[in-house]
């Protein structure tokens, strides 16, 4: 019989985190931790050296991710994560630039940047954590708040409909569009790993509980109850029509998840310049086989 739990001081993901900053500021039951863990695992799994990864964030709870990951990172001004990331990518095309930000940052104040980066098909990965409100500033109405949902600025219910983010990203020209919740950690990690190695503007929406800002006024309960809601009400359908992906979040509504779009478009390249000679990465995206790993270790 093996011992029960072993108490330690270090996590095995700590090399890729700035562990001196942990515990992070996010509330108990927040989904940002799993989303960041999936991203950190995808970075490790990608085989790309950590030095070549860059994480760019805007402002908000999700914007904190750039500060907690031990990769080169950039905590930018509100909504401007994508322009900073575009500049980074164009000046050093060897970098793998990921924008990790929230729905309010990317689709409200940063909506125009999202629009044009996707249209140009800049080689970026955008991970958008959608918690249906502005969590850090006190749970105000955001562009993804579902219809009739209560927030501090819409105490009688939201009169607007929410943005259908995957539909929008696909319409703008993103070459890979996925949506997962923070409960679907394996699918999310796979989608992020796939997005990291795919050329062009790749987009992953991550649904996340915000128990304090959104869960409490909308009777969704704490983080655990919202995660259970995701487990009960999620339907995985990669072929779902994009215009049916609007989120309701009422008790018996369904959440459609999946990798909706995977297509090819010419990647943004300034006129008169050559695409960078990419190093051969064909071997590094193989799924890790425990047997092969064990053999290599010998």
């Amino acid at each position: 019989m093996c011992p029960r739990e072993i108490v330690v001081n270090e996590h095995k993901l700590d090399p890729i985190l700035r562990s001196d900053r942990l515990p992070h500021i996010w509330c108990p039951g927040c989904g940002l931790g799993p989303a960041m863990a999936c991203f950190a695992n995808a970075i490790q799994e990608s085989g790309i050296p950590v030095d070549e990864h860059v994480c760019v964030s805007g402002i908000g709870c999700t914007g904190r991710v750039a500060g907690y990951l031990n990769v080169d990172s950039f905590h930018t001004t509100h909504g401007r994560a994508i322009p900073f990331a575009t500049g980074l990518k164009l000046s050093n095309p060897d970098l793998h630039v990921t924008v990790f930000s929230g729905d309010g940052d990317l689709f409200a104040i940063g909506g125009n940047h999202m629009l044009h980066a996707a249209r140009r098909n800049v080689d970026l990965t955008v991970i958008c954590v959608n918690n249906f409100n502005y969590g850090m500033t006190g749970g105000q109405l955001g562009p993804t708040t579902p219809y009739a949902a209560k927030t501090t600025t819409t105490p009688y219910g939201n009169p607007d409909g929410p943005l259908n983010i995957p539909h929008l990203a696909a319409a703008l020209g993103a070459v890979f569009v996925a949506r997962w919740t923070v409960l679907h950690v394996r699918q999310l990690q796979k989608a992020i790993a796939f997005a990291l190695q795919k050329k062009g503007f790749t987009f992953v929406e991550v649904l996340s509980p915000c128990p304090i800002g959104f869960g409490r006024p909308n009777d969704l309960g704490d983080g655990l109850e919202e995660m259970s809601f995701y487990r009960r009400q999620s339907v995985v359908d990669d072929q779902a029509p994009l215009d049916s992906l609007e989120i309701d979040m009422s008790k018996d509504s369904t959440l459609v998840l999946g990798n909706f779009v995977d297509r090819e478009r010419p990647v943004y390249q300034p006129m008169g310049t050559e695409p960078p000679a990419h190093r051969d990465r064909s071997v590094i995206y193989q799924p890790a086989d425990p047997e092969v790993k064990a053999r290599e270790a010998l």
Binding site: R4, N9, P28, M227
Partner: peptide, 15 residues
Amino acid sequence: GQTYIIPQRCKGCRF
């Protein structure tokens, strides 16, 4: 598997 725990980091979310 063997479970390792860092009690000081936990915020009791029960996930």
